[in-house]
Amino acid sequence: MALARVASLALPFAEPRARRVTFAELVGEHQNEVYGLALRMLGERDAAMDVTSVVFMKVFRAFDRYDQARPVRPWLLRIAVNECISAGRVLARERSRRLPVDAALELPGREGLPEEEAVRSEDRVRVRSAVAALPELYRVPVLLRYFSGLSLEEIAGVTGRSASTVGVQLLRARALLRGTLEAAP
């Protein structure tokens, strides 16, 4: 069945460079970005993996309706962000019954690391914790900007807000992060 289905997976998607890619290529090219976005949004590897699978299932199903003249990445990220928000709300309810948010952030251990790397790792932990504690309204643009590297206009396209609103949200988010990081010991 698998080999027979491979041929049907050769689904064309429009890229910014007008390159047509298959569904399998799309998954290969974007799975790390979708997974990383979900991991930074949710803080749990299993949940991030589930969200990644669901996102690509939705992408597969929506293929017929997708306008192939438009770039695929913003569309994919829009689905991913919406899925992360839904999963995040469910997860937040579960976490409130289970354990504090900090404990749920999966971060590499420091054991056996050289001093310089340990300090860097500690800084990553603090920044990730601060980003995870941001309200959803600010966390989404922060991740799209500093994880996915999107421009303000591209974030506006993904979130459905204006570029100026996104700019203001990023300013506020950075101010909140600065406050949190300065207050932390």
Partner: peptide, 23 residues
């Protein structure tokens, strides 16, 4: 600092997804 902290580390990269199974 934000970019550095948020990027996916080598030990966080997920296993390859199987597009056939997803489909």
């Amino acid at each position: 600092r934000l970019r550095r902290a948020l990027r996916l580390e080598a030990d966080e990269v997920p296993p390859r997804l199987d597009a056939v199974l997803i489909a």
